[in-house]
Design a protein around this nucleic acid. Sequence first.
DNA 1: CTTTCATATGAATGATTGTTCATATGTTCA
DNA 2: TGAACATATGAACAATCATTCATATGAAAG
Lengths: 123, 123
Amino acid sequence: MERDRKERYEEVCQEVHVHEDVVNFVTGEMPEEETLYDLAELFKVFGDTTRIKILYVLFESDMCVCDIAAALNMGQSAISHQLRVLKQAQLIKSRRDGKQVIYSLADDHVRTIINNGMEHIME
Amino acid sequence: MERDRKERYEEVCQEVHVHEDVVNFVTGEMPEEETLYDLAELFKVFGDTTRIKILYVLFESDMCVCDIAAALNMGQSAISHQLRVLKQAQLIKSRRDGKQVIYSLADDHVRTIINNGMEHIME
DNA sequence: CTTTCATATGAATGATTGTTCATATGTTCA
DNA sequence: TGAACATATGAACAATCATTCATATGAAAG
């Protein structure tokens, strides 16, 4: 089984050297484990070039799956799989129009988040 | 070798059905391939619970590696590896203080990006 | 109802990634 | 100089993930 974290930790950094007051303070300020997990999951969705591209084309226009695939020069199946991921993260929504399914951005958070990321890499 | 994308695409969606005008418009508005790649790489860094936690503790206080490991209840090596990733993405910086290395946030973009993500998952 | 078309989905595969273990580097203090 | 300590790093492994292929679903038109 897995050894206790604390035990392994002490093999490297002696307990006495840890600044317990600082450690206790920062852990007290941290959000719930589940919240942090959800946050990481959200960013993970933005962490793929294909999905970023899909969001970018949807910035300009609502589109059906085939057109997105054509715009990104990728297979229909690959796009469909990624649309599912984006939809589950509630970043996009879909409506049916005859034989086609039209995808669009769910809300403006998406633009905000991407623009903030852009600002950072442009620094 | 890999078959041509267009060829494969046409096996599923006939060329004639693609809305070429829309496709041409949205692709024209897209940033450089390299920019999109960098953007995805940036979000990938935020897409891990351990790294999110590290950033959260650094919101509260500059800290040495051992204290971060203690705060997150993880091994020193795991933290050190992730600190490297965060530093390469220029989200954090470090300074030496005797035997210890103190890590701190690089700038306020980090807070902004995380707060935007938080807003989305709290909707 | 049957064919055609657009999209969705499941399994398989190759690539990427986070953590661990072992060890190296570099600093301080005796 | 050498011992002790904090951090960094490389290799290995398990887990996760994006894409592909094959096929299923579901709508529309004949």
